[in-house]
């Protein structure tokens, strides 16, 4: 595309850059659709989000720091980030495994399992929350098996991790799967012909190809886990300092009409979301360069 543009530009001299866009403007509706997009985006997303930022400015810097760094809030960051990191890592490992199995092997029921991977996207988080709690509580199917061994998975930080694993699972599978499908078998054959073992081939040939997608999936699962609320609050037990996630801190402050405090913590979460969004964008650009614009 760009090569074509640099050729056409000098031909239409004096068109100061608009020549590049001229052929596309044959289609009508640019102003209407872009105008509506910007209007709707502003009304639904940008103006309300700026309300959050402006509310923060009603606090002094000291008040802000006090609100976002009280011991209870700090404990919630540790839990939210720690649990999200563990869950995203587990998802990276098992998501890669599931993607591998779905792409490379054939087995009965493969199509159903492939469809089922999206369940966490489709199942409302509250339903996931109560269902996982029912499974892991001491009288549940899994909880009752583990209880004699003294393993408690519900109503403590373990439960948070498990809920976050459930929520984040499709991200890794769905980002790795298409890249694995497009990966060239010839490279693997070449590696084998040159005497590499299967493990070496995986590590030096396949893994570098899927690494950007795997990282993207990891970052997406991590970002989603940090903001997650519905599935976690049922299983966490929500004890202050122990199993209280950051989104719940915001709810708690709201219920006490501490709007400024809730806003301050929300701003911290929002900044982290922005940062992660930028990281994910950069990762996706890297992935597109790697796969030559094939995926997404």
């Amino acid at each position: 595309m760009s090569a074509v543009n640099t050729v056409t530009l000098p031909l239409q001299a004096g068109a100061d850059g608009s020549a590049r866009r001229a052929p596309r403007r044959v289609l009508p509706g640019f102003k209407l659709t872009l105008g509506y997009t910007l209007f709707y985006l502003s009304v639904i997303v940008l103006i309300p989000l700026s309300a959050l930022i402006f509310k923060t400015f009603t606090l002094t810097w000291d008040q802000f720091v006090a609100a976002v760094s009280s011991p209870r809030v700090m404990a919630s960051y540790r839990l939210t980030f720690g649990a999200s990191l563990i869950a995203a890592s587990v998802n990276a490992v098992f998501g890669l495994l599931v993607a591998w199995v779905l792409v490379r092997y054939s087995f009965p029921g493969k199509k159903i399992i492939d469809a089922l991977v999206d369940l966490p996207f489709a199942l409302p988080t509250a339903v996931a929350g109560i269902s996982l709690t029912a499974l892991l509580a001491s009288n549940g199917w899994i909880g009752s098996i583990l209880e004699p061994y003294g393993i408690q998975l519900a109503f403590n930080p373990n439960g948070v991790v498990i809920a976050l694993i459930f929520i984040g699972l499709p991200f890794v599978v769905r980002t790795v799967q298409p890249v694995l499908e497009d990966a060239e078998k010839e490279l693997e054959e070449a590696a084998t012909c040159l005497g590499a073992t299967r493990l070496q081939t995986f590590w030096y040939v396949i893994f570098p190809t899927i690494a950007p997608a795997l990282l993207t999936g990891f970052a997406m699962a991590f970002a989603r886990a940090i903001g997650e609320y519905g599935s976690v609050i049922f299983i966490a037990g929500n004890m202050p300092m122990i199993s209280e996630i950051t989104p719940l801190i915001i709810i708690g402050k709201l219920e006490q009409y501490d709007y400024a405090g809730a806003t301050a913590v929300a701003v911290v979460l929002l900044i982290i979301s922005f940062a992660l969004l930028l990281v994910i964008n950069a990762l996706q650009a890297w992935q597109r360069r790697r796969s030559g614009g094939a995926s997404q």
Partner: peptide, 16 residues
């Protein structure tokens, strides 16, 4: 953007 904003924060902005 709304994908990466926590649902709780999404609710909060309308309350504000």
């Amino acid at each position: 953007l709304p994908f990466s904003v926590s649902p709780v924060v999404a609710g909060l902005i309308y309350v504000l």
